[in-house]
Design a protein around this nucleic acid. Structure first.
Lengths: 142, 142
DNA sequence: CCCAATTAAGTTGTGCACAATCTAATCGGC
DNA sequence: GCCGATTAGATTGTGCACAACTTAATTGGG
């Protein structure tokens, strides 16, 4: 069959569609925390290591300052982080969790498990999926 | 380990990141055709079956009218489709490829193969990935 | 037959993504 | 120690996504 453009055969569409579906499952759960999905990812990065610069967060999440600057401003407006010019290098801005931002971690702890349950895949399938996706991303952006 | 919030362990992040990486590989290729990635998906749907209504396209792509209406208006502005109120039911709008829109299919034919090559996965791995993602999406969205 | 409920598409408002550009701080070569 | 090049972050502009709402056409129960 010379047809290589069938929509349902495209890996790109499966990926795009699955990504939006997963975000859609997160949305009502994160809504309870007053977060969007990308904001949640930024907090995951900060809960792992606080006080990162904007570009360190960008490297971890593969997002640029055009996306992060306004997002961080909204997190600051929500009282979850604050931003300070680094003393050593005034070009850099370090992002620090506030007490409210740190405390949110407890409330967020159950979120991934609730999403994993809705996914209907086994833990093994999820790990394998994650590894293939990570390989794919590394091949493309590496 | 009681930590279940590490960024690199999250399937959601792997998915989100891979989806953006794939879109990023498509971008320069689609740029040559004057298309964005979602516009390309709409054209894939129309190349498969022309004259669909807005909501049929929305079902195929899992997108709502809030996304599709302005997107279709831009495709119409680019001269690739036209939109007509259905005679049988004036609420519906059917979307039809113009000659330019049909012709673009030839130029787009090689795009998926070029992306697949950049992905660095075997055809089998890609098919398996696609199937897991489709299962995941179906589980989440029903 | 009529009208309340439903349906299709469009509009509005918010928040990403990302390219392109801008400003300010720092670095490196001389 | 100066100045061109680089780097960090912010800004601007375009185009998705999606919730909430609006408008207009259709349907179905009484």
């Amino acid at each position: 069959m010379d047809e290589n453009l069938a929509l349902r055969d495209q890996v790109c569409f499966a990926l795009y569609s699955a990504s939006r579906a997963v975000t859609g499952v997160y949305r009502p759960l994160l809504d309870e925390l007053g977060l969007t999905y990308p904001q949640f990812l930024v907090l995951l990065a900060l809960w792992e290591r606080d006080g990162r610069t904007v570009s360190e967060i960008g490297t971890a999440l593969r997002l640029d300052s055009g996306t992060l600057s306004p997002l961080l401003k909204r997190l600051e407006g929500a009282g979850l982080v604050d931003r300070r010019r680094a003393a050593a290098d005034e070009r850099q801005v370090t992002v620090h969790l506030t007490d409210a931002g740190s405390d949110l971690r407890e409330r967020a702890r159950t979120v991934p498990a609730r999403v994993a349950e809705a996914a209907g895949l086994t833990t093994d399938q999820l790990r394998e999926l994650r590894d293939v996706l990570t390989t794919l991303t590394d091949n493309l952006k590496g």
